[in-house]
Design a protein around this nucleic acid. Structure first.
Lengths: 221, 221, 221, 221
DNA sequence: GATGAATGAGCGTTCATTCAT
DNA sequence: TATGAATGAACGCTCATTCAT
C-alpha cells in the first residue's frame, strides 16, 4: 500500500544484477504472493516489485501469468518428493523411524519453509488449472502417498503395526500435516494464533503410533 | 412498446415469482462458484446467471461482492455448529458415540453437502478477508474445536480414553475430515479420483479409536 | 491531444441515449479513425471518445478490436455494391450511360462520402486480416469488377465500343476512381492539395471514352 | 572464452562482416515488413531478426522507429525519380515512346521490385507522418507528375496526341500503375489472384493510347 | 423490485527505447 | 560496434459497480 511501487531502487546496485536475477527469484516472489492472496488476486506488479524488477521483466522469463504459476509449482515440487523416496531406502527396515522421519522431516523441510504454502495454493487453484493439478498429483501426491503406504504395509507385515486398512492410510497420515501448513497460511496468518507446531506434531505422532498399535514409540530427540 | 398495457392486467402477477428469489438462492449460487473458482476469479455475472437473475439484482441484496462473500460464509455457518453443540448434550456420557456422531455426522451434514466447500473457500480467502476469517474462527472453528476437546477430555476423565494431550486434539480430529472435503473440491473435481469417503472415514475412525486406546469401537450401522 | 478524454460530457443528455447509441455510431467512429490512422495505430479510447461513449461500451457490441474492424467493413460494404447491380438493369442497353453513371455515381455515393476511406483501409490491412480481405474481395471487388466488365462487353458487342480486351478492364476502370479516394485520405489530408475531383473525373471519363472509341460522349449535366 | 586470443590474430577480422551490415540492410528489412504489416504493426524485433542483427543495433543507425521509417522512404525514393527525368531528355521528341517507357519502365524498375511496396506504405502512413509524406510528395510525386504532364503536353503540341486536359493527366496515367502495385501488396498477397501484370499493362497502354488519339501505338517487343 | 446498458479503474501483456557490458 | 537484459508507458480487455427505466 504505502510502499513505493518499485520507484527508484537503491542506486547502489542499479542494474547490475541482470543475469543473477534468475527465474528463481521471480518464482519465489510469485509463490509467496500466490499463497498469500491467491493466484487471481495477485497482480504481476506486486510480484515484480517483490522481486525487485519491473513488470516487463517477468515476460523475459515467463510467457504469461499462468506459465509463471506452472513454474512456481514445478520448481517447488521437483526436489521435495525425491528426498522422501531416498529416505525410504535408508531406513528400509524400521517403519516407526520412517514414519517419524517423514512426519517431522516433512514439516522441517517443507511445511515449515516457503514450500509449505504450495498445498494451500494447489488446493485453491486445482480446479482452475487442472493441467497443473494433474502434474502435481502425479509428481507429488501420488508418489508421496505410495511412500507412506509402503511403509505402513511393511510395518504391518513385520508385525510392528497392528493390521490396518492401508489403502487410504497415506491420506490419513498426511491430513494433519497438511492441516498444519494450511492453517499457517490461512487463519494463522490473519486472525488466529498459529498452531503450536511442536505440540501438534507430537499429539499427532502419539495418536498415530497408538492407532497403529505401537505403544512405546518416542518422538525425536 | 408504445401500446397500451391492456394485455397485462395486473403487474403483480408476472413478478410474483421473484419473491421467492431469496438471498439464499444468491448465496447458494455464490458459494458453489466461489468454491469452484475462488472468490477473485468468480464474476458476478456468473453468480447472477446461475441464480437466474440479472447482475444488478445482486446489488439489491448485497452491497458489494465482498458483502456477498460475508453472507455466504455467515449463512453457511450459523446452523452447522449449533447442531453439534446440541448433540453434545444429548450424549453427554458417551464419548465414543459422540466422536462417532461428530465424525460421521459432520460428513453427512456438512462435508458431503454444498457446505463442504466452505473450508476450501475460507482457507483460500482467509488472508484476503481477515474480518470474515475472524468471524468464522470465532463462530465455527473455536466452538467446534472446543466441542471435540470437551468430548475427549470427558473420555479421558471417564477412563474410556487413554490419557492424551487434549489441547490440540480437536485440530487433529478435524484434519482428516477437512482433508476429505478439501480433496473433493480440488483434485477430486479436476484430475484425480475422488476419495472413497466411506473407507476413508472408517480408516480414520478406526485409527483414532485405537489411538485413544479404545479397541472395540464399532463404526456406525 | 488537447481535447479532454471524454471527461464530463455535456450534462444535457447524460446517459439518456443508451439504446440509440447503436453499433452504427461506433462503427462510424471506428471507420473514420481506422482510415485516418490505420487499424493498429487507432486506440479504442479514441474510438469510444469520438462516439461519445466509454471504452467499455465498445465491448457491449463487439467482442474485440478485430471484430469491430470486421463490422466496419461489412457494414460499409453491403449496400454499396447492390446499388450498382440494380443500376445495371435500369440502363441495360446504354453502355455509355452506364459507365458514366458508375463513374460519377461511385464518386458521389461512395468515394466522396465516409465510405471512401474503405479502400485505403482495406489496402492497408488486407494482409493483416486475410479473412476480412477475402470477404471484401468476394462481396465487393469481384462483383464490382464483373459489373464493369459486363457493361464493356455489351458495349463492344453492340458496336458502341471498339474491340478491347475486357478481362481486366474493370480494374483499369476503377483504378483512377480508387486513386482519387486514396489520395483524399492520404496526401490530400496531410500535405498536398486535394485533387480537384470534378476535373479529375472529367479527364478520366474523357480519356476512357476516347480509349473505348467513343468520340462524342458527354459528361453529365 | 577465457583462452588467449592467439587463435584470432587481429580483432578486425571477426567483425569485418559487420561492416557490410549497412543501414541499407536494415531499411530493406524494414521496408518489406512495413509494407507487409504496416508501420504500427511491425515490431522492431522483427525488423532486426529479418536483418540478422539484434534489436539494439537498430539504434546505432536510427534514432527511433520513426527515423527508420523516414530512412526507408528517403532511400527508396531518391534514385527512382532521377532515372525518369534522365529518360525525358533522351527521348525528348517521341512522346509515345516516352509514355511507353515510363509505363513499362516504372513497372520493371519500381512496381515489380521491392520498391513497389512504397506506394502502399506511403498511402497508409501519410496522415501519421505528414512530414515524410510532404517530403515524398515534393521529391517523388510532384516531379513524377510533372514529367508525365510534360510528355503529354509536348505530344499535344506536336499533334501526336489529340487535345486533352493535361492538368491531371499525370494522376490518371499513374493510377493504374499504382493500382497494380497496391493490389500486389494487399489482396494479391493474401486472398486473391495477383493481377496479370503483362495483360494489365497492355490493356492500360492500349486504352491510354487510343484515349490520347493514337491508333497505331504498339506495346514493347 | 428488477433490469441491463453504461461506466471507468485496473489488470495482463506488448514493445519502443535504454544502457551496461 | 554490437548485444540483449531491463524498463515502463501504453494498450486491449475485464468486470464490479451504478442508475435510468
Amino acid at each position: 500500500m504505502t510502499q513505493a511501487p518499485a520507484a527508484v531502487p537503491n542506486d547502489a546496485a542499479p542494474r547490475r544484477r541482470r543475469k543473477e536475477a534468475r527465474p528463481q527469484e521471480l518464482t519465489a516472489a510469485a509463490l509467496s504472493l500466490f499463497v498469500e492472496k491467491g493466484f487471481a488476486a495477485t497482480r504481476l506488479d506486486e510480484i515484480a516489485a517483490r522481486a525487485g524488477v519491473s513488470k516487463g521483466t517477468l515476460y523475459l522469463y515467463f510467457d504469461s501469468k499462468e506459465a509463471l504459476f506452472k513454474a512456481v509449482i514445478a520448481e517447488g515440487v521437483v526436489p521435495a518428493i525425491e528426498e522422501g523416496e531416498a529416505m525410504l531406502e535408508r531406513h528400509a527396515d524400521d517403519p516407526v523411524t520412517l514414519l517419524r522421519e517423514f512426519l517431522y522431516g516433512w514439516w522441517a523441510r517443507i511445511g515449515n519453509t516457503e514450500l509449505g504454502g504450495i498445498p494451500k495454493l494447489m488446493i485453491s487453484e486445482a480446479r482452475n488449472f487442472p493441467e497443473v493439478a494433474a502434474y502435481y498429483h502425479e509428481t507429488v501426491i501420488h508418489r508421496g502417498l505410495k511412500l507412506i503406504r509402503t511403509v505402513v504395509q511393511r510395518g504391518v507385515e513385520q508385525g510392528v503395526f497392528r493390521p490396518v486398512s492401508t489403502e487410504l492410510i497415506g491420506n490419513v497420515f498426511m491430513a494433519p500435516l497438511l492441516h498444519l501448513a494450511l492453517w499457517r497460511h490461512s487463519f494463522g496468518s490473519c486472525c488466529a494464533r498459529d498452531l503450536d507446531a511442536e505440540r501438534f506434531l507430537a499429539t499427532w505422532f502419539d495418536l498415530l503410533m497408538h492407532g497403529l498399535g505401537v505403544r512405546d514409540a518416542e518422538p525425536p530427540q
